[in-house]
């Protein structure tokens, strides 16, 4: 058995402890992510997903019981090299469009590589590559002011800015929310390619269950600061009662298969990838 790349064990976290505004965000959350995986993380609003993920690159440090171990290093150790860690684990935050801080698109994307002290040629190569991955045309956008972009374009720039670091682990916190459906599909294809071709490990948070079903190899379900379910998307989405009680719903494929079974058709409830579902439907239509 290989070691997980990121291991979170029994993590607790409270915001603003000891003040009237204190908010307990994590109550014993655990998660393991192995190199080369795409892991999905779902949960209702306020479940603690963003809080958990901000522990993965040391933006939040474990102060209460619990461990975060990234690539064999315990982040509770104050001597951890944060810059190295943050280059290894790249996070695209929720509302990425609010995270641009440079005036020009090109500068914003180049910020990370510049901090790493790379040569101009290398920086340019990375910016071009990152913009290609997110689907922004280099010549059109590189000298545009970030303030003059649409919401979706800002989103892409923010994602490109993180990609330009070429992190080993890419964390996407609701990064595709608000993209139009076609862009979204291209984006999913790009994530799959980053995972397959570049070997990037990916953690996806999304409220779009279709996206989770399409991307993730394994899914964690989070509620009230801890994990309540874990498994392949097919397994997790078969637990309708749990998902409904959390107000999460399921992908439409999963719903169709469940409904068909309930009405006495013999279909495989785990065939939740769109192509698989179509196969199942064709099969029962033929028979």
């Amino acid at each position: 058995m290989t070691e997980p790349l990121i291991a979170i064990r029994d993590l607790h976290y409270t915001y603003l402890p000891g003040t009237p505004l204190q908010a307990v965000a994590l109550r014993g959350a655990s998660m393991e992510v192995y190199a080369g995986e795409i892991v999905g993380l779902i949960g209702p609003a306020g479940a603690g997903k963003s809080t958990l993920l901000q522990h993965c690159n040391g933006l939040l440090r474990p102060t209460e019981p619990g461990h975060v171990i990234v690539d064999g290093q315990d982040l509770a150790d104050p001597t951890v090299d944060l810059r190295r860690l943050r280059q290894m684990v790249g996070i695209v935050f929720q509302h990425p469009e609010r995270q641009l801080f440079e005036t020009l698109v090109g500068d914003d994307i180049a910020f990370g590589p510049r901090q790493l002290g790379m040569s101009r040629a290398e920086i340019r190569r990375r910016v071009e590559w990152a913009m290609r991955v997110v689907g922004l045309d280099f010549d059109t956008f590189v000298d545009r002011p970030t303030a003059a972009l649409s919401g979706g374009e800002r989103r892409k720039v923010a994602i490109a800015g993180v990609l330009a670091l070429r992190p080993r682990v890419l964390i996407l916190d609701e990064a595709s929310a608000g993209l139009d459906p076609l862009t979204r599909e291209e984006w999913q294809e790009q994530v799959r390619r980053l995972n397959a071709d570049e070997g990037m490990t990916v953690i996806v948070v999304s409220s779009d269950m279709e996206e989770i079903a399409a991307l993730a190899g394994r899914v964690y379900v989070m509620a009230e600061g801890r994990m309540v379910d874990e498994g392949t998307p097919a397994e997790v989405f078969a637990h309708t009662d749990l998902l409904n009680s959390l107000g999460l719903g399921q992908p439409v494929t999963s719903w169709v298969l469940g409904e068909l079974r309930r009405r006495g058709y013999d279909v495989d409830p785990y065939a939740i990838r769109l192509e698989e579902t179509v196969e199942e439907l064709c099969r029962i239509l033929r028979s």
Binding site: Q99, G112, A158
Partner: peptide
């Protein structure tokens, strides 16, 4: 809150904040 978001975004991309 926006300042916190920006600082976190910068730090995540290798800036010196919080290190």
């Amino acid at each position: 809150e926006q300042l916190e978001t920006l600082a976190k975004a910068q730090a995540s991309r290798g800036a010196d904040i919080g290190a």
